[in-house]
Amino acid sequence: MSRTLEVKVLRQADPHSGSHWETFDVAYEAGMNVTTVMQRIAANPVTADHRDTTPVAYDACCLEEVCGACTMVINDRVRQACSALVDTLLADGAGVIEVRPMTKFPVIRDLVVDRSPMFQSLKRVKAWVRVDGYYDLGSGPRVTRQEQEEAYPLSRCMSCGCCVEACPQFNDHSAFIGPATISQAVLFNSHPTGKVDRDDRLAVLSGVGGIVDCGNSQNCVKVCPKDIPLTDSIAKAGRDTTTYKIRQWFGR
C-alpha cells in the first residue's frame, strides 16, 4: 500500500529571522518515526507544492530516547522525534503531522534549539557529586537498597527539556529554573557524598526563580518521557527549603 503523509514543519533560517510553515508529502513506511520522516525530507527537500527548499535542520543522536537531542513539539505535544512513531500519531487521530521547535529555548535553525539554559541552571544547583582529589578516598558510604530505589528514577533525566516546555511557569516573564533542575538538586541532596553541598543547592532553590515559582500545574510529570517523579521532588524541595530558611533565620 502506498500512502502519503502530510507533514507540516515550522521553519526558521537562523536565530534572528522569523518563522514560517512548510508542508511536505512524505511516502509512508511501516514503523517509521518522526526522525525517519525528517531524513526522508532531507533526502528530497521539495515542498508539497513542488518548490525546492533547504533540508529541514533537526538534531538526533541516540535514536532510542536516552539523549534528548531530538526533543520537539509534535502535534502540539512536546516529545522526542525518535520515539514518536508515525503509526501512533495516526492512531491518535491526527491526519497531519505537525512539527515545530520547542518554544522555551532559542531556535538555532528549524527544529534545532539551544538547550544551554538547562545546563546553566544545573550548574547553579551544583548538580554533581564533588569528589575532590586524585588520591584514593577509600570506599564510599553505604547506600541502602531503598535509597537506591528512590534515587535511580531521578537519575534518568536526560535534560531533554520536555518538562520546562510544558511548564506554564517557565517562560520569558519569569526567572523559574524549572522542574528538571529542582529534581536534580533533590537527587544530589539525597546522595551521601552529594549532601556536602546541600545548603548551597537549597540556597538557590529558595531564591528568585526557585521552588516558590512552581505553580503546581503538574504538567512536567505528565510529559516527562522518563517518568521521573518530578512532583515528588518539587514537594520535597518545598519542604527542605522551608526548613532550610527557618534554620537560616534562627541562625541554625
Partner: peptide, 20 residues
C-alpha cells in the same frame, strides 16, 4: 498571574486546568 503563561488549551491535563 503576570509571570505565568497558562497553556491549558494545549495540555489539557486536570492539574493544568485547575492551575488555570
Amino acid at each position: 498571574i503576570f509571570t505565568s503563561r497558562s497553556n491549558a488549551q494545549q495540555y489539557r491535563y486536570g492539574g493544568n486546568v485547575r492551575y488555570m
